[in-house]
Amino acid sequence: MQRVNMIMAESPGLITICLLGYLLSAECTVFLDHENANKILNRPKRYNSGKLEEFVQGNLERECMEEKCSFEEAREVFENTERTTEFWKQYVDGDQCESNPCLNGGSCKDDINSYECWCPFGFEGKNCELDVTCNIKNGRCEQFCKNSADNKVVCSCTEGYRLAENQKSCEPAVPFPCGRVSVSQTSKLTRAETVFPDVDYVNSTEAETILDNITQSTQSFNDFTRVVGGEDAKPGQFPWQVVLNGKVDAFCGGSIVNEKWIVTAAHCVETGVKITVVAGEHNIEETEHTEQKRNVIRIIPHHNYNAAINKYNHDIALLELDEPLVLNSYVTPICIADKEYTNIFLKFGSGYVSGWGRVFHKGRSALVLQYLRVPLVDRATCLRSTKFTIYNNMFCAGFHEGGRDSCQGDSGGPHVTEVEGTSFLTGIISWGEECAMKGKYGIYTKVSRYVNWIKEKTKLT
């Protein structure tokens, strides 16, 4: 034993070699072989497995989906700052455009905790909710729209109204504003409101030439003092309507412009014939205590009207009353817009006519005020429907199939267009061939041609 100890002390290297040989010859039971080890760690190889990531292109799944990435790591994937920024906006807080917040056709661009709407022409605001041009839906104005110097929408209202708090709607500024039905039992019968379409306001006024200088022999019209197929109006439903009495009662109609003036057809009036105007009328054979009678003290036909040349060209006249009318729910003026808007309103496509005229061709006159909704007829169809001249200051309205029309005794009465609950004068009943005849239409004086003249002559002093 002493000898062994001496050998170990003198030859430590020998001992180490012996131990190493023993270990190498022993069977290893701690580690699995290569094949079995792979069965336990069965993990798919990654895209760049075996390579240094710093030297390969980034992978979106590896960089940002398996674990949260930084902007720089995302930049490695896209290799483009702009594309990385677009991805980053949604990656950080989701897609803010998912709810489609942009209105009126706006395009949404996502941002971090926010979004941006790219608005089409005519709109602005956070969600493109603000109209900035009158060309689109009248700028959301209830009545009139004008573009300011910086191309912003400025709404306005006709006389007797003021802008509401929203700067879009119009509200009454006087007790009985024009064009409004205020009798409670008839307010439910107000005709369907007309909503502004998209309009090209630059070209809204037709490029028409008034044929002022045409000389033409007097034409022989049949029954051209021209509501057939209409309905009984309720008291106060058309408070701007008046009836004219002269040699015979209810020979023509008219509309209240203001307390002192009536507008009617020029062919209705004769110099030297006494005319009485009755406002607030409903049943011409009954006294309903809503009527107001006034005498006409002055007749002003349009300066281009000449019955000797043509009885229905420039067929418009103004009547001055001896005493002002007292405005109330049964006696209310009709609204008159400017030339541009009167023309736009007419193009809405349908209007209402009213009167006490004959209820059928050569038949009896109506006792109760009649009204009828009539569609506008395109000019080409209008011209083809008659052998008589249709001037540019006239328009056609009615039904091709016949059966409904204005008729004798309705002449001078109103053709009105309702705009968001307020009625505007767009025409004056003038003439036609018979009444409600198939293929024939009622012919009306186009008020847009005469609004400046009306307003100039009827100013209240």
Rank of each mutant, 00 (worst) to 15 (best):
M8N: 12
M8Q: 11
E10S: 14
S11I: 14
P12H: 10
P12G: 12
L14G: 04
I15S: 04
C18K: 03
L19N: 02
Y22C: 11
L23C: 06
S25H: 05
E27V: 04
T29Q: 10
F31K: 14
N38S: 14
I40K: 15
I40M: 13
I40Y: 11
K45C: 04
R46S: 14
S49W: 05
G50I: 15
K51A: 12
L52K: 15
L60K: 15
L60Q: 15
L60M: 15
R62H: 04
R62T: 04
R62P: 06
K68Y: 07
C69Q: 03
S70F: 07
S70Y: 11
S70G: 10
E73F: 06
R75N: 15
V77P: 15
F78T: 03
T81I: 07
R83G: 15
E86A: 15
Q90M: 10
Y91M: 15
V92P: 10
G94C: 03
D95V: 04
D95Q: 05
E98R: 09
N100W: 05
C102K: 00
L103V: 09
N104D: 01
D110E: 06
N113P: 03
N113R: 10
Y115H: 03
E116T: 11
G122A: 05
G125K: 00
E129C: 02
L130V: 12
D131R: 12
T133S: 14
T133R: 05
N135T: 08
K137D: 12
N138P: 03
C141G: 00
C141S: 00
C145L: 00
C145Y: 00
A149S: 10
A149H: 10
D150A: 09
V154N: 06
Y161V: 01
R162A: 09
R162F: 07
R162H: 10
L163D: 00
A164M: 10
A164E: 05
N166W: 02
Q167G: 06
K168I: 10
P172W: 03
P172M: 06
A173M: 11
P175V: 08
F176T: 07
R180M: 06
V183L: 09
V183A: 13
S187I: 11
K188P: 13
K188S: 13
L189H: 13
T190D: 09
T190A: 09
R191L: 13
R191D: 09
R191I: 11
V195P: 09
D200W: 09
Y201K: 13
S204R: 12
A207M: 09
T209L: 13
L211I: 13
N213G: 13
T215Y: 09
T215I: 09
T218Q: 08
Q219K: 11
S220G: 10
G230F: 12
E231D: 10
E231W: 11
D232H: 13
G236R: 06
Q237C: 04
P239D: 00
W240G: 01
Q241P: 00
N245P: 03
N245Y: 12
K247T: 10
G253S: 07
E259F: 03
I262Q: 01
A265M: 02
A266Y: 02
G272L: 05
I275H: 05
I275A: 03
A279G: 03
H282L: 11
I284D: 06
E285C: 05
E286K: 09
E288K: 07
H289R: 07
R294C: 00
N295W: 04
R298S: 09
I300R: 03
P301N: 08
H302F: 07
A308C: 06
Y312N: 08
N313F: 08
L321N: 00
D322N: 09
D322M: 03
E323T: 14
P324E: 07
L325G: 00
S329F: 05
S329E: 15
Y330W: 14
Y330H: 10
V331W: 00
T332E: 03
T332G: 04
P333D: 01
P333S: 05
I334H: 01
K339L: 05
L346C: 02
L346G: 02
S350I: 07
G351E: 01
V353M: 04
S354Q: 14
G357W: 07
V359H: 13
V359D: 13
K362G: 13
G363I: 06
R364W: 05
Y371K: 13
V377R: 05
A380H: 07
T381L: 09
C382L: 03
C382M: 02
T386D: 04
T386C: 07
T389F: 13
T389C: 05
Y391M: 14
M394T: 04
F395R: 02
F395Q: 00
C396K: 01
A397Q: 01
F399Q: 14
H400Q: 13
Q408E: 15
Q408V: 06
D410N: 10
G413S: 15
H415E: 00
H415P: 00
E418P: 12
E420R: 11
E420L: 12
T422Q: 03
S423F: 14
F424K: 00
F424R: 00
F424M: 01
F424Y: 10
T426F: 00
G427D: 01
G427E: 01
I429G: 12
S430W: 03
C435I: 03
A436W: 08
M437R: 13
M437N: 06
G439M: 05
G442P: 04
T445K: 00
T445L: 12
K446S: 08
K446P: 03
Y450L: 01
Y450F: 04
I454Q: 00
E456W: 07
K459L: 08
L460G: 07
